[in-house]
Computed example of a mutant assay.
Amino acid sequence: MSMIACFLAISQDELDALYDESGEIAAVLDGEYAAQIIDIDKAWHGIHFMLTENSSASSPLAHAVLGIKKIGEEDVGYGPAHGISAASVKKIAEALNGISEEAFRAMFDAEAMTNAEIYPDIWDKDDEALVFLLTHFEVLKGFYADTAKAGKAAISFLN
């Protein structure tokens, strides 16, 4: 079984309601919003590592993949989902927008990722692994840009 990171754009009001009624998270993710969920496949851990390796814990980049505030305790795949406020989505989108393809490529360190046991263990395939990460980084970047433009909040979860 593999772990993939998933993301859903929702209104801030809907996110706030989920914090109050966290038992509804599975119904939201499996219900009417299921078709709107995007994922970055197994690239999530590598992207998270690359974005956080040289940034502080308070940086918007630190929250781009795994979210910010836990939505209850319900396991939605691999632990609970996490919410990201509309204001934080905007900050994350701006931070991600500041990372060019060239800058992202420069962040890639196959040896460091292998040594840190970053999932999935594919980092010995330098070019192939980097293309895999870059492709999914662009998906993540697009998700945040679109979500910020719509003024929405987000949910992230591992499934």
Rank of each mutant, 00 (worst) to 15 (best):
T147H: 06
A112D: 09
S11N: 09
E111M: 07
F137L: 06
G67H: 03
I25W: 06
I25D: 03
N54M: 10
S85T: 15
S56T: 15
Y144M: 04
R105G: 11
G142Y: 07
L66H: 13
T135Q: 13
I37N: 05
K149S: 08
D126T: 12
A153T: 01
N159F: 11
A116G: 02
G23C: 11
I38T: 09
E138L: 12
L133S: 03
R105T: 13
Y144D: 01
A64N: 04
L130Q: 09
L134R: 09
G46N: 07
W44Q: 07
D20M: 10
L133R: 02
E117G: 09
A129P: 04
Y19N: 01
E53P: 02
D127H: 10
T147R: 02
L66K: 14
A87P: 08
A153R: 02
K91W: 01
V65H: 00
I84L: 05
A129I: 07
E138H: 13
G46P: 02
A110Q: 00
D146N: 13
L18E: 00
A150N: 11
G46M: 06
A86K: 10
H63S: 15
L51I: 10
D121Q: 03
A9N: 06
L140E: 02
S156V: 01
T135F: 11
N54L: 11
M3K: 15
A112M: 06
I25G: 01
D41L: 12
E24L: 12
A26I: 14
I155H: 00
T147V: 04
E21T: 14
Y78G: 06
G72L: 10
A150E: 14
A110T: 02
I38P: 00
D41A: 14
Y78A: 13
P80G: 07
I47K: 05
F137Q: 02
D41W: 09
G79E: 06
W44Y: 15
D146H: 09
G23S: 12
T114S: 11
K152D: 09
I4E: 13
I71V: 03
G72C: 13
